[in-house]
Protein backbone atom coordinates (compact mmCIF):
# COMPACT_ATOMS: atom_id res chain seq x y z
CA UNK A 1 0.00 0.00 0.00
CA UNK A 2 1.33 3.39 -0.89
CA UNK A 3 0.22 6.85 0.03
CA UNK A 4 -1.18 6.96 -3.52
CA UNK A 5 -3.99 4.63 -2.52
CA UNK A 6 -5.02 7.12 0.15
CA UNK A 7 -4.63 10.02 -2.26
CA UNK A 8 -7.27 8.34 -4.42
CA UNK A 9 -9.79 8.18 -1.55
CA UNK A 10 -13.27 9.40 -2.51
CA UNK A 11 -12.91 12.33 -0.08
CA UNK A 12 -9.72 14.20 0.84
CA UNK A 13 -8.12 12.82 4.00
CA UNK A 14 -6.22 15.26 6.20
CA UNK A 15 -2.45 14.82 5.93
CA UNK A 16 -1.72 13.67 9.49
CA UNK A 17 -4.33 10.94 9.24
CA UNK A 18 -3.22 9.89 5.77
CA UNK A 19 0.35 9.50 6.96
CA UNK A 20 -0.70 7.54 10.04
CA UNK A 21 -2.82 5.14 7.97
CA UNK A 22 -0.03 4.59 5.44
CA UNK A 23 2.49 3.88 8.17
CA UNK A 24 0.11 1.61 10.09
CA UNK A 25 -0.82 -0.55 7.13
CA UNK A 26 2.78 -0.94 6.04
CA UNK A 27 3.85 -1.87 9.56
CA UNK A 28 1.40 -4.76 9.55
CA UNK A 29 4.02 -6.87 7.79
CA UNK A 30 7.03 -5.52 9.65
CA UNK A 31 8.58 -7.65 12.35
CA UNK A 32 6.88 -6.97 15.67
CA UNK A 33 8.17 -6.98 19.21
CA UNK A 34 6.97 -10.57 19.73
CA UNK A 35 5.42 -11.60 16.40
CA UNK A 36 7.19 -12.21 13.12
CA UNK A 37 6.16 -10.29 10.03
CA UNK A 38 4.45 -13.40 8.66
CA UNK A 39 2.51 -13.86 11.90
CA UNK A 40 1.45 -10.22 11.91
CA UNK A 41 0.25 -10.44 8.33
CA UNK A 42 -1.71 -13.59 9.16
CA UNK A 43 -3.27 -11.94 12.23
CA UNK A 44 -4.32 -8.93 10.13
CA UNK A 45 -5.90 -11.14 7.47
CA UNK A 46 -7.68 -13.16 10.14
CA UNK A 47 -9.01 -9.98 11.76
CA UNK A 48 -10.65 -9.05 8.47
CA UNK A 49 -12.04 -12.55 8.04
CA UNK A 50 -13.53 -12.76 11.56
CA UNK A 51 -16.66 -10.82 10.62
CA UNK A 52 -17.75 -13.71 8.38
CA UNK A 53 -17.25 -16.45 10.99
CA UNK A 54 -20.45 -18.40 11.72
CA UNK A 55 -19.32 -19.41 15.20
CA UNK A 56 -18.72 -15.78 16.09
CA UNK A 57 -22.15 -14.85 14.75
CA UNK A 58 -23.80 -17.52 16.92
CA UNK A 59 -21.85 -16.35 19.95
CA UNK A 60 -22.76 -12.74 19.33
CA UNK A 61 -26.43 -13.63 19.31
CA UNK A 62 -26.16 -15.71 22.48
CA UNK A 63 -26.80 -14.42 25.98
CA UNK A 64 -23.97 -16.65 27.19
CA UNK A 65 -21.35 -16.51 24.47
CA UNK A 66 -18.91 -18.74 26.34
CA UNK A 67 -21.41 -21.59 26.33
CA UNK A 68 -21.34 -21.81 22.53
CA UNK A 69 -18.69 -24.21 21.29
CA UNK A 70 -17.55 -24.94 17.78
CA UNK A 71 -14.88 -24.20 15.23
CA UNK A 72 -14.09 -20.81 13.80
CA UNK A 73 -14.12 -20.24 10.07
CA UNK A 74 -10.53 -19.22 9.50
CA UNK A 75 -7.72 -19.00 6.96
CA UNK A 76 -5.70 -21.77 8.58
CA UNK A 77 -2.53 -19.73 8.97
CA UNK A 78 -2.62 -19.36 12.76
CA UNK A 79 -2.80 -21.71 15.76
CA UNK A 80 -6.32 -22.26 17.09
CA UNK A 81 -5.92 -20.11 20.25
CA UNK A 82 -4.65 -17.23 18.13
CA UNK A 83 -7.71 -17.49 15.89
CA UNK A 84 -9.97 -17.50 18.96
CA UNK A 85 -8.19 -14.41 20.31
CA UNK A 86 -8.42 -12.48 17.05
CA UNK A 87 -12.06 -13.38 16.40
CA UNK A 88 -13.21 -12.63 19.95
CA UNK A 89 -11.46 -9.22 19.95
CA UNK A 90 -13.03 -8.31 16.61
CA UNK A 91 -16.55 -9.57 17.14
CA UNK A 92 -17.39 -9.52 20.86
CA UNK A 93 -14.77 -7.60 22.82
CA UNK A 94 -17.35 -6.11 25.18
CA UNK A 95 -17.98 -9.51 26.77
CA UNK A 96 -14.35 -10.59 27.17
CA UNK A 97 -13.70 -11.81 30.71
CA UNK A 98 -10.65 -12.30 32.86
CA UNK A 99 -11.09 -16.06 32.66
CA UNK A 100 -11.14 -15.90 28.86
CA UNK A 101 -7.93 -13.84 28.94
CA UNK A 102 -6.29 -16.37 31.24
CA UNK A 103 -7.51 -19.23 29.06
CA UNK A 104 -5.67 -17.77 26.08
CA UNK A 105 -2.42 -17.89 28.04
CA UNK A 106 -3.11 -21.40 29.31
CA UNK A 107 -3.74 -22.37 25.67
CA UNK A 108 -0.20 -21.34 24.80
CA UNK A 109 -0.20 -17.68 23.81
CA UNK A 110 2.55 -15.79 25.61
CA UNK A 111 0.97 -12.76 27.27
CA UNK A 112 3.21 -10.36 25.35
CA UNK A 113 2.12 -12.04 22.11
CA UNK A 114 -1.51 -11.64 23.15
CA UNK A 115 -1.05 -7.90 23.69
CA UNK A 116 0.55 -7.55 20.26
CA UNK A 117 -2.28 -9.60 18.72
CA UNK A 118 -4.77 -7.32 20.49
CA UNK A 119 -3.10 -4.16 19.23
CA UNK A 120 -2.72 -5.35 15.67
CA UNK A 121 -6.24 -6.78 15.45
CA UNK A 122 -7.65 -3.56 16.83
CA UNK A 123 -5.64 -1.36 14.47
CA UNK A 124 -6.82 -3.32 11.43
CA UNK A 125 -10.41 -3.05 12.64
CA UNK A 126 -10.02 0.70 13.12
CA UNK A 127 -8.51 1.20 9.67
CA UNK A 128 -11.23 -0.88 8.01
CA UNK A 129 -13.95 0.95 9.91
CA UNK A 130 -12.58 4.27 8.69
CA UNK A 131 -12.25 3.26 5.04
CA UNK A 132 -15.68 1.66 5.05
CA UNK A 133 -17.14 4.82 6.53
CA UNK A 134 -15.77 7.02 3.78
CA UNK A 135 -16.70 4.60 1.01
CA UNK A 136 -13.28 3.18 0.30
CA UNK A 137 -12.14 -0.43 -0.05
CA UNK A 138 -10.01 -1.80 2.80
CA UNK A 139 -6.40 -0.69 2.45
CA UNK A 140 -4.28 -3.30 0.72
CA UNK A 141 -2.02 -5.15 3.12
CA UNK A 142 1.61 -5.74 2.14
CA UNK A 143 2.09 -8.83 -0.03
CA UNK A 144 5.24 -10.00 1.69
CA UNK A 145 6.50 -9.81 5.24
CA UNK A 146 9.71 -8.68 6.89
CA UNK A 147 11.78 -11.81 7.65
CA UNK A 148 13.72 -10.40 10.61
CA UNK A 149 13.19 -12.06 13.97
CA UNK A 150 11.32 -10.32 16.81
CA UNK A 151 13.42 -9.32 19.82
CA UNK A 152 10.84 -10.80 22.25
CA UNK A 153 12.03 -8.74 25.20
CA UNK A 154 9.67 -7.80 28.02
CA UNK A 155 10.17 -4.33 29.55
CA UNK A 156 11.23 -3.98 33.17
CA UNK A 157 8.56 -3.04 35.69
CA UNK A 158 5.58 -4.97 34.31
CA UNK A 159 2.93 -5.62 36.98
CA UNK A 160 -0.58 -6.96 36.85
CA UNK A 161 -3.19 -4.23 36.87
CA UNK A 162 -5.11 -1.96 36.77
CA UNK A 163 -7.07 -4.58 34.83
CA UNK A 164 -6.16 -8.25 34.43
CA UNK A 165 -3.25 -7.76 32.00
CA UNK A 166 0.37 -7.06 32.83
CA UNK A 167 1.15 -3.38 32.26
CA UNK A 168 3.93 -0.91 32.97
CA UNK A 169 2.68 2.10 34.93
CA UNK A 170 4.13 5.62 34.71
CA UNK A 171 6.26 5.13 37.83
CA UNK A 172 7.89 2.01 36.40
CA UNK A 173 8.26 3.12 32.78
CA UNK A 174 11.84 2.96 31.49
CA UNK A 175 13.51 4.82 28.64
CA UNK A 176 11.83 2.64 26.00
CA UNK A 177 8.61 4.52 26.80
CA UNK A 178 10.10 7.91 25.92
CA UNK A 179 7.59 10.65 26.71
CA UNK A 180 4.60 8.34 26.34
CA UNK A 181 3.08 9.20 29.72
CA UNK A 182 3.59 12.95 29.34
CA UNK A 183 0.18 13.40 27.73
CA UNK A 184 -1.79 11.48 30.33
CA UNK A 185 -1.86 8.65 32.83
CA UNK A 186 -5.38 7.44 32.05
CA UNK A 187 -5.73 3.69 32.51
CA UNK A 188 -6.48 3.20 28.83
CA UNK A 189 -2.96 4.39 28.04
CA UNK A 190 -1.60 1.53 30.15
CA UNK A 191 -3.52 -1.20 28.35
CA UNK A 192 -0.79 -2.13 25.83
CA UNK A 193 2.32 -1.10 27.78
CA UNK A 194 3.58 -4.67 28.11
CA UNK A 195 4.80 -4.28 24.51
CA UNK A 196 6.22 -0.75 24.17
CA UNK A 197 6.98 -0.96 20.43
CA UNK A 198 3.43 -1.99 19.69
CA UNK A 199 2.14 0.65 22.06
CA UNK A 200 3.70 3.32 19.89
CA UNK A 201 2.30 1.83 16.72
CA UNK A 202 -1.18 1.77 18.24
CA UNK A 203 -1.17 5.33 19.53
CA UNK A 204 0.46 6.71 16.38
CA UNK A 205 -2.68 5.60 14.58
CA UNK A 206 -5.21 6.43 17.29
CA UNK A 207 -4.04 9.98 17.94
CA UNK A 208 -4.92 11.36 14.49
CA UNK A 209 -8.11 9.31 14.38
CA UNK A 210 -9.28 10.95 17.62
CA UNK A 211 -6.85 13.32 19.35
CA UNK A 212 -3.56 13.02 21.17
CA UNK A 213 -4.68 14.51 24.43
CA UNK A 214 -8.37 14.14 25.25
CA UNK A 215 -7.83 15.88 28.61
CA UNK A 216 -7.49 19.18 26.81
CA UNK A 217 -10.35 21.62 26.73
CA UNK A 218 -12.35 21.64 23.52
CA UNK A 219 -10.25 21.54 20.33
CA UNK A 220 -7.43 23.90 21.20
CA UNK A 221 -4.96 23.82 18.32
CA UNK A 222 -6.60 20.78 16.71
CA UNK A 223 -8.21 21.09 13.31
CA UNK A 224 -11.48 19.21 13.10
CA UNK A 225 -14.59 19.87 11.03
CA UNK A 226 -16.95 18.74 13.80
CA UNK A 227 -17.13 20.20 17.29
CA UNK A 228 -15.66 18.65 20.43
CA UNK A 229 -19.16 17.93 21.66
CA UNK A 230 -20.04 16.19 18.39
CA UNK A 231 -16.83 14.15 18.59
CA UNK A 232 -17.71 12.98 22.08
CA UNK A 233 -21.31 12.32 21.15
CA UNK A 234 -20.21 10.03 18.32
CA UNK A 235 -17.65 8.38 20.61
CA UNK A 236 -20.29 7.65 23.23
CA UNK A 237 -22.64 6.10 20.74
CA UNK A 238 -19.95 3.93 19.15
CA UNK A 239 -18.77 2.74 22.57
CA UNK A 240 -22.33 1.72 23.37
CA UNK A 241 -22.28 -0.59 20.36
CA UNK A 242 -19.21 -2.25 21.79
CA UNK A 243 -20.77 -2.61 25.27
CA UNK A 244 -18.06 -0.34 26.64
CA UNK A 245 -18.50 2.77 28.74
CA UNK A 246 -14.88 3.18 29.71
Amino acid sequence: MSIEELNRAPYPIREDLKTALAVAVNEVAQVGAWLSGDQRLAVANEARHAWDCKLCQHRKEALSPYAIEGEHDHHGDLPEPWVEAVHRIVTDSGRITESWYESMIVAGIIEDELIEILSLTTMVTCMDTFTNGIGMKPLALPESADQNLPARKRPEGAKRGPGWALTVGPDDAGPEFGNFYDTGHQFIRRSLTLVPDELNRFWNLMNPLYMANPAMNELDDIERAISRAQIEYVATRVSAYLDCFY
Binding site: S93, L118, P162, G163, I188, V238, S239, C244
Partner: peptide, 17 residues
Protein backbone atom coordinates in the same frame (compact mmCIF):
# COMPACT_ATOMS: atom_id res chain seq x y z
CA UNK B 1 -13.88 9.23 15.34
CA UNK B 2 -15.99 6.11 14.79
CA UNK B 3 -12.84 4.21 13.87
CA UNK B 4 -11.00 5.40 16.98
CA UNK B 5 -13.81 4.25 19.23
CA UNK B 6 -13.73 0.88 17.57
CA UNK B 7 -10.24 0.77 19.06
CA UNK B 8 -10.20 2.10 22.61
CA UNK B 9 -13.01 -0.18 23.85
CA UNK B 10 -11.32 -3.25 22.39
CA UNK B 11 -8.04 -2.41 24.12
CA UNK B 12 -9.79 -1.60 27.42
CA UNK B 13 -12.15 -4.56 27.46
CA UNK B 14 -9.59 -7.17 26.43
CA UNK B 15 -7.15 -6.11 29.14
CA UNK B 16 -9.86 -5.55 31.77
CA UNK B 17 -9.04 -1.87 32.20
Amino acid sequence: DIAAFNGYPRAADTTGI
